[in-house]
Simulated assay, not measured.
Amino acid sequence: MLLSANDILLFLGFAALTALSLWMILRPLRGAMALPERAEGESEIALYRDQLDEVARDLERGVIGEKEAQAARIEVSRRLIAADEARIAAERSKGVDDPRWRKVAAISLVLFVPLCAIALYLMAGSPGLPGQPIAARLNVPAEELPVEGLIARVERRLKENPQDIEGWESIAPAYLMLGRYDDAARAWTRAMLVDGVTAARLAARAEARVLANNGTVSAGARDDLEKAVALDAGEPRAQFLLGMAELEAGDREAALARWKALVAGAPEDAQWVPAIRARIAAAEGRIEIAPEDEPLIRGMMEGLAARLEDEPNDLEGWLRLIHAYKVLAEDEQARSALATARATFGQDADALARLDEAEAALDK
């Protein structure tokens, strides 16, 4: 979302006011931290004053003479002056708090900061914009709402009428789209409680559970899938996910057989068929070619085959041709090209070893 110049100005103004407020609040605390040092300086001064009094008492009792008393007074006075100067310097450098500063800080916080905030809002904000409660914001045409808004609207409707089957069947796919897989599974459960169990609903709940489990078919999801195909053997989502479970279990042939049967029985206009074919190709270790790309690939392959008739000693060309036939699932032509290549390189052990690798790839 792009910010306007007013938005940026408003943000910077509030940030500056926040910083100023914090500084005013923390400065007295900083001064309070200096109090122990201040108390220490004053105690030293009091000590020297006590020493001056002690010198005077000693002189009165005759313990010391006038000269000794005078010398002691000079020395103690020198230390007293030095201690007092050090105290004053410390107060200036540490910024010791005083009542006047506290009053200024309090008045500024109470008056200046709110007034500045109001001025900034009046200048860069939208004080004339009417309030928009959540209910009012949701009561707009559906095409004007984001997905989250649509979900909030349906959730509100379902809270008022939990028997609304259309609501449950519309919110479950929306949850799925937003990655809220557990919510999607719960929504399908509510739909089945309201309107009964169907193969499509079981398959949809299983899909949500699989996605919530990082793409792994859990025991609960598999149970849903088996119940779904028991109700409708042609349910495509259930058959596809059961094939995924078989593939995860290491039974690749069972998964391929299930998917190929699903594709063979699919309607001509089924939009999910290309995705299943791509899965089949991936499980078989080959590339699924889009119908619009096949003429180009076949033309390149036929050109390569024609060139190899004139230049049969090109081993890399034979290997590319064999692989191209495999990609197009033309195993008979691939093996024919392999046999021709073997005959051509019958005396080259290295070439025959690479052709053996190509044959092993055909058997996978």
Rank of each mutant, 00 (worst) to 15 (best):
D183C: 04
G179M: 11
L202E: 03
L129R: 14
L9G: 06
I107C: 02
A360D: 13
I322D: 15
A339P: 01
E169L: 15
A270H: 01
G131M: 03
S77I: 03
V263W: 01
Y325P: 07
D97I: 14
A249M: 00
L178D: 06
E235G: 02
E292A: 15
D98K: 10
P114A: 09
R87F: 09
G196W: 04
A305M: 02
R307E: 14
I322Q: 10
L12S: 09
A353P: 06
A221C: 05
P133N: 07
E332C: 00
G346T: 05
L129P: 00
D7G: 08
K260P: 03
P291T: 15
L241D: 08
D251Q: 12
E75M: 07
A278E: 13
I74F: 10
L59G: 02
R186L: 15
Y175T: 06
K67G: 14
K103T: 11
L176Y: 04
T216S: 14
L29S: 03
L241N: 11
I289T: 13
E284S: 03
V110R: 07
L122R: 08
A290I: 12
V113Q: 02
G167D: 10
A278G: 12
A255L: 04
A212Y: 01
A290S: 09
E332L: 13
A16H: 00
A290N: 07
F112Y: 11
A221P: 00
E359F: 04
A305E: 12
N139V: 00
I280V: 13
D164H: 09
V327Q: 04
A89F: 01
R73M: 15
R205M: 14
D269V: 09
A83N: 11
D356W: 12
I287Y: 00
Q333H: 14
L193R: 07
G131A: 10
A56D: 11
D331H: 03
V96I: 12
S43N: 10
L20M: 01
R61H: 08
A204E: 07
K227Y: 09
L12W: 05
E40L: 15
Q70P: 00
A249G: 01
G128R: 04
A135Q: 12
D195Q: 13
A278Y: 02
K159G: 08
L256M: 08
